[in-house]
Every structure is written in structure tokens, then in C-alpha cells.
């Protein structure tokens, strides 16, 4: 059934919670026969095109493992796949950290230093509170347009 049937004005919402039908996965043998030559091609390009030795050797060995695992021993193929996923994840995490961590220390570290020198604490942490009340008066909403804003 479509999400919305125009003729009957019926919305489909019940079946949506059910698990989606599982897409038939490609056979491991087929995957291996596609992936291994592709990896070998990349290794060859790096070796002959860019004169690298170590990385193409690793990729070539992995391609042999993928082919052997895919054709003869599936746990080996799955292990290489898992290793690949882990490696990809680690690359993303590392890139994230390389980009964001210096940004954090530079912007927020420096920002905090400036605020401290000015005696400002954005979180108002002085404890116990010197004031008799901690209730903050709420500003009156001046215009209903305020409700259209995200801030």
C-alpha cells in the first residue's frame, strides 16, 4: 500500500512499524569475485602508478584472503569485512578528532580564559547562592512572531 491513498484518503501507518522486508543479500561468492579483482586492481595501480610497495602488498594480500574466504571459507571473508568496517570507522573517528579537538581547545579553551578574566561564568555556578531567590524573571513575549523563531 502507498503511504497515502488519494482515492480513499487512507494513510498507511500500521505496517510501518514492522521490520522492513529483508533485501536478499548478494551471495558471498559473487561479492568475493567482485571485490578481490577490484582490490587487486587498486594494488596494481598503487604499485605501478605510484611506486608504492607496502600498502599495495597489504591490499594484494587482503584481496587473496577475500577471494579465498569468499570461495572456500566464509568466516575468513566475514572477518576481513569486519576488519574493513572497523578500519573505516577508525578513519572517520580519527579525522573527526584531528579536525574538532584542536578547534575545541582553541575556541572554547581560549574563550573560557577570556570569560574567566572578565569574571563571567555562563553557568552561574557560584555556590551557595548569595541571593535570596534563584528565580529569574521571565521576559514578556513582545511579539507573537517570537514563536516563529528558533531562538
Amino acid at each position: 500500500m502507498k503511504i497515502h491513498d488519494e482515492k480513499t484518503n487512507q494513510w498507511e501507518w500500521k505496517a510501518l512499524g514492522a521490520p522492513a522486508p529483508v533485501k536478499k543479500a548478494m551471495a558471498i561468492q559473487t561479492k568475493a569475485l567482485i571485490q578481490a579483482p577490484a582490490m587487486l586492481g587498486i594494488a596494481a595501480l598503487m604499485y605501478f602508478g605510484f611506486d608504492h610497495v607496502v600498502v599495495p602488498s597489504i591490499v594484494a594480500v587482503l584481496s587473496v584472503l577475500v577471494l579465498a574466504g569468499g570461495l572456500f571459507y566464509h568466516p575468513l571473508f566475514h572477518a576481513v569485512e569486519r576488519g574493513g568496517r572497523w578500519f573505516g570507522h577508525m578513519v572517520i573517528v580519527t579525522v573527526n578528532w584531528i579536525l574538532l579537538a584542536p578547534f575545541y581547545f582553541l575556541v572554547f579553551g581560549f574563550g573560557r580564559l577570556v570569560l574567566r578574566l572578565q569574571g563571567i561564568d555562563p553557568m552561574d555556578r557560584a555556590y551557595p547562592a548569595a541571593a535570596e531567590t534563584c528565580w529569574l524573571p521571565r521576559k514578556k513575549i513582545e511579539s507573537l512572531d517570537q514563536y516563529r523563531k528558533q531562538h
Binding site: A101, Y104, F105, F108, G109, Q150, H151
Partner: peptide
């Protein structure tokens, strides 16, 4: 108001840096 919430989160980091990096890395 999502932007208001984002401002609060940024101000939190301004108040705790250099601590808070892990939380920042997860939230951003």
C-alpha cells in the same frame, strides 16, 4: 527552540573547557 538549545550547549563548553572534549566530540 533548537538554536537556543545549541547556544546553551556552546556556553556550557565555554564554561568548562578544556574539560568536556569527549562530550563535545559526541554532540557536535
Amino acid at each position: 527552540k533548537p538554536i537556543e538549545k545549541f547556544v546553551r550547549i556552546l556556553k556550557t563548553y565555554f564554561s568548562v573547557a578544556p574539560q568536556g572534549l569527549q562530550s563535545f566530540m559526541m554532540a557536535m
